[in-house]
Amino acid sequence: MDALKKELKESIIEQLNLEDLNVDDIADDDALFGDGLGLDSIDALELIVMLDKDYGIKLTDPNEGKAVFVSIEVLAKYISEHRTK
């Protein structure tokens, strides 16, 4: 699980162009949206593509995304339970 969390932090920084951040700057329970990392709606869409591309998970309901993209902790748990690749 820790390896997955680290991998997720790396790909989020890379995919979402968070140039000012390092893996160590993101805590497992930091809020990804709102006051935490400050991600926005386009980032959420890009995360949906990332889930599909890297883990074979298709999210079609935007509300489902909201529940999954809470924090690295929640996201890693969801991926480990639903991944197809």
């Binding site: 995919q15 162009n17 386009i42 869409l45 890009e46 593509v49």
Partner: peptide, 9 residues
């Protein structure tokens, strides 16, 4: 086939 919303915008 993974169209990117962040590029599309």
């Amino acid at each position: 086939y993974f169209p990117s919303p962040a590029v599309f915008v």
